[in-house]
Design a binder for these strands. Structure first.
Length: 567
DNA sequence: CACGACGAAA
DNA sequence: AGGAGTTCGTCGTG
């Protein structure tokens, strides 16, 4: 075999794949790799990706074959594939499509490969969902088993293709407007149209439930609206917070022929159940006391919904999964910028909402100028000399905080502000103490959870018009949908390895920009502390999306911060 | 009755 | 492994 030491992939026998970024073709390899893996680690230029049953089935659901995967691994692999890797991949991908849920004469059936189903019959956990084992390749299921059986089989390692169909739901007359309320021409972008086409194939039972993954700022709401209009049925929209509820309503009224009287908000003091109803996950899971039922879950049955949209499906709470298991005959559309869940419920999203139907790499959206080009930089500053001893003596949890609140970060912030003077800039942090201090030093306004809505609006407006160019924000910024976009974001501290958080924060920068469509994201961490590790974990998602973090170190001399090379 | 303040929950 | 934010519902006040 000729020398392949310059090839970027190293495939390991535990189904992890190392990508060496420094090799040629690494970017090409990554583009293919991310279609069937998750990113799990980064150490220097070596990125670790992993194939799991779930990543492989999601790949299979979007039309990728074993040959494509084996082909990619062999083409870019430095060594021959380890023993059994190929067969394991083929085995897992092969399971996709082996089991199908169907209906016949009103009965729910599981059909498939006789050998496999014979084997599964040994699993006692399956029996409670089965009415009659008619044949080894055909089981008649209990009426309410559809969701829970899928969940159980997925857990056992066998995905089910659900072809049991959907009930139509209450009809609703709705069309997309050619011109928005402000008389601007409106049309779907190609990828939005394509996403909806995969989700809903007229006259078939395929699609109809699943997840569409699009970058922040690529118009997920618009995709939801397109699906709603395509189906023209009563729709329940679930989302993460009340700002987002308002935003959905505004978009619906702006882009469709739906009237005020047809769109209801369910939450707070308003409990409207209308042909299109928007609610938060929070209210669904709210109970009066620990023992009481989830009384608001009735919302699922209060109308004959033809479609349920799960916005930010990566945030979906456990009780809503349970409810969703019971309504598998209703079409379901999940929307998200990232399928990554830190709580391990990705499997439930797959089995109960549906497989991934469509996704687009953030880098692709950037290349097409749908979103701004963000350059990401991690800046490492040393721990202040006088704090080093304190840091060493501290316990694990105060260590992180000491590192995060390192005052040595402040001069860097000043320098970055100078570099990007005049551009709308967000300074984002995790600890209120630190943020208050920075706000005082920089004489910039601070937005936290305790700032009343009115005042927030005032700050947003002033930021939008440019009368203030720097805004310091706490975690409110993670989900405040109406926070204006910025061109520069500086992250002073962030929470433990939350990829979602990093993605949300960068999402703030993505709206296309005037001029050369550029934006900058800086994350400042204290060198040689736990904080760098956390930062690395947060960056995984963006790395998976093809973003590259530049890394700078700021050496300190006796008299302070030395000038570093401009990024 | 409308509204804001407050505590509890997850 | 933790801090911050959000939301609901209740209670007190004008």
């Amino acid at each position: 075999m000729h020398d392949r030491h310059d090839f970027p992939l190293i495939v390991q026998s535990d189904l992890t794949v190392l990508l060496d970024e420094s090799k040629s073709c690494a970017q090409q390899a990554r583009e293919k790799l991310v279609l069937f893996t998750d990113a799990i680690k980064r150490a220097g230029s070596i990125h670790t990706y992993r194939m799991t049953a779930l990543t492989l089935w999601n790949a299979a659901a979007s039309g990728i074959s074993s040959d494509d995967i084996i082909g990619c691994l062999s083409e870019y692999g430095r060594y021959e594939l380890p023993f059994q890797t190929e067969s394991t991949v083929r085995k897992l991908i092969g399971r996709y499509g082996k089991l199908r849920l169907t209906t016949d004469a009103g009965k729910l059936l599981l059909q498939g490969d006789a050998g496999l189903m014979h084997e599964l019959q040994e699993n006692l956990s399956i029996h409670e969902y089965v009415n009659v084992f008619r044949q080894s390749s055909l089981w008649e299921l209990k009426e309410n088993a559809r969701g829970r059986l899928k969940q159980e089989l997925t857990r056992l390692g066998y995905p089910v293709i659900d072809l049991a169909g959907y009930h139509a739901g209450e009809e609703l007359s709705v069309r997309i407007k050619k011109y928005t309320s402000q008389n601007k021409p409106f049309a779907f972008r190609d990828y939005q149209e394509a996403a909806v086409n995969t989700f809903y194939k007229e006259g078939t039972v395929q699609g109809g439930s699943g997840v569409i993954v699009l970058p922040c700022g690529a118009g997920k709401t618009i995709v939801g609206i397109a699906a709603l209009a395509r189906l023209s049925r009563a729709t329940l929209i679930l989302t993460s917070n009340s700002t987002s509820v308002k935003q959905w309503k505004e978009e619906l009224l702006d882009k469709t022929t739906l009237t005020e009287a047809e769109v209801g908000q369910y939450g707070g003091t308003l409990k409207q159940v209308r042909p299109v109803t928007i609610a938060t996950y929070n209210i669904l899971t709210h109970r009066k006391s620990k023992e009481a039922d989830f009384s608001h879950m009735n919302l699922f049955s209060e109308r004959d919904w033809g479609l349920i949209i799960y916005d930010e499906v990566h945030l979906l709470p456990a009780p809503v999964f349970r409810m969703t298991a019971d309504i598998q005959a209703t079409r379901r559309l999940g929307l998200t910028a990232t399928l990554v869940r830190e709580d391990g419920c990705a499997e439930d999203v797959y089995s109960l909402i549906g497989p991934k139907q469509y996704d687009m790499q953030w880098k692709t959206a950037e290349n097409e100028s749908y979103i701004a080009a963000v350059s990401c930089t991690e800046i490492r500053v040393p721990m202040q000399k006088e704090r080093e001893a304190q840091y060493r003596g501290a316990n694990a949890r105060s260590k992180l905080r000491l590192a995060a609140e390192n005052p040595g970060k402040i001069p860097i912030v000043r320098q970055l502000l100078q570099e990007h003077a005049g551009k709308p800039t967000l300074i984002i942090g995790q600890y209120l103490d630190q943020l208050h201090e920075v706000a005082g030093l920089l004489k910039a306004p601070l937005l936290t959870g305790e700032v009343p809505q009115q005042e927030r609006q005032l700050l947003y407006d002033r930021f939008k018009t440019g009368s203030i160019s720097v805004l310091i924000v706490s975690k409110v910024a993670n989900f405040a949908v109406d926070l204006p976009d910025a061109a520069v974001a500086i992250q002073l501290s962030g929470s433990f390895g939350s990829r979602q958080e990093e993605a949300q924060r960068i999402g703030r920068l993505l709206r296309p920009k005037q001029g050369n469509n550029s934006a900058w994201f800086y994350t400042i961490v204290t060198d040689e502390t736990k904080e760098t590790e956390f930062a690395m974990k947060r960056q995984l998602f963006m790395l998976e999306q093809g973003y590259h973090y530049e890394r700078l170190r700021y050496p300190v001399e006796a008299n302070g911060v030395r000038e570093a090379a401009a990024p």
